[in-house]
């Protein structure tokens, strides 16, 4: 891909960059002159068609990323840019340093969070080659900022994908859910690997799992959040894992508001104990809505409901219960 004579010189002229960019985006779209950036301290100033040089590698900056957060959809992430690695033509996601300390709120609970490039860089190193995590590397720009260069994954979120499966819940549950449960168990094992290595994901959400269009594999993304934990370092991750499982079993969120309109007989049977312990409008006891969900699976969901007396402290018992459910489900769906 790259012109070897250009690389051999070790630095890039405007003409070099134009040649490399033309190979990636075509001559017509190459600007007259590139702005070359090595210091990303002011990430707002890193703009479309700029060249960011990191470790001697030029990256052609494209658009910034967007993400929903805490119920607010599509917030721009100006510190996260898509870029083309000009030496390979590969699409990358460049994450610059956005030092952020904030108080996260879940329902009426609050806790102190931090966005940490150090944490994500550390985990990228830890999970290198692990198929259930986004892949990439970290480096420093000329000002010493920790920059993460992530392989771009073409695909959709697991959350979006699930909604496309099956004509109704019954078909989904018996045809599509069993293999999905296997994939989910692999994702939980990946989190177990992090926990056993003394790390937490920190922001486990259903839109932080990407399904690759290329090979249908699933991977966790975005692990730059950390928070001051209290008794247990891992319970917040467990909360995220539980929410995702409830979403997968229900083929999306099953809310009390929706049931009130669509199925009053089911709605009338619901009690507070059936609801998600944190998100009080989501049903966790899904067997009440879909009676064919087996006890062995539903009992896991109930650990995340208001009626729960015991919670999962870590992934070990959770995985053990999931494996039991998997064995049972694979038996009756065969």
């Amino acid at each position: 891909m790259v012109n070897q004579s250009i690389m051999d010189r070790g630095e890039f002229t405007q003409e070099d960059l134009k040649k490399l960019a033309a190979q990636c985006i075509g001559h017509v779209r190459v600007p007259d002159k590139f702005r070359i950036i090595t210091d990303t301290s002011n990430f707002f100033s890193v703009d479309f068609n700029d060249i960011l040089v990191l470790d001697g590698n030029p990256y052609l900056i494209r658009n910034y990323e967007r993400e929903g957060r805490f119920g607010i959809e599509d917030q721009p992430k100006y510190w996260v840019k898509r870029a083309i690695e000009l030496t390979t033509g590969k699409l990358k996601v460049i994450k610059m340093v956005f030092p952020e300390k904030f108080t996260a709120r879940i329902g009426d609970l609050t806790f102190d969070c931090v966005r940490s490039p150090k944490k994500e860089a550390r985990i990228l190193e830890l999970v290198r080659g692990h198929r259930n995590f986004m892949q990439g590397m970290s480096t420093k720009d000329s000002a010493g900022n920790i920059i993460r260069i992530i392989d771009y994954i073409r695909g959709s979120t697991m959350a979006d994908y699930v909604l496309t499966l099956g004509n109704d819940h019954y078909e989904y549950f018996f045809e599509f859910f069993p293999p999905l449960l296997n994939d989910y168990i692999d994702l939980v094992k990946a989190i177990q690997f992090l926990h056993n290595s003394g790390e937490k994901h920190g922001d486990i959400r259903r839109d932080h799992i990407i399904r690759s269009k290329h090979d249908s594999s699933y991977c966790w993304i975005d692990f730059d959040f950390n928070y001051w934990h209290q008794e247990n370092m891992f319970t917040y991750d467990m909360f995220g894992l539980g929410n995702i499982l409830i979403y997968l079993v229900g083929r999306g969120d099953v809310t009390s508001q929706h049931l009130r309109k669509s199925s009053t007989s089911v709605f009338d049977q619901l009690i507070t104990g059936d609801l998600n312990i944190v998100f009080n409008n989501r049903v966790a006891n899904l067997q009440k809505v879909y009676p064919y969900i087996p006890d062995v699976l539903n009992n896991i969901l109930l650990h995340f409901s208001f009626s729960a007396d015991t919670f999962y402290d870590d992934t070990d018992q959770f995985l053990s219960d999931l494996e039991e459910a998997k064995t049972y489900i694979n038996t009756f769906t065969k």
């Binding site: 009426d108 609970l109 934990h229 008794e231 319970t235 909360f239 312990i277 402290d313």
Partner: peptide
Amino acid sequence: SKKEEFIFGSTSNK
């Protein structure tokens, strides 16, 4: 509360 115990854990219960 139960919710807090779920999210943060409880030292005495553990």
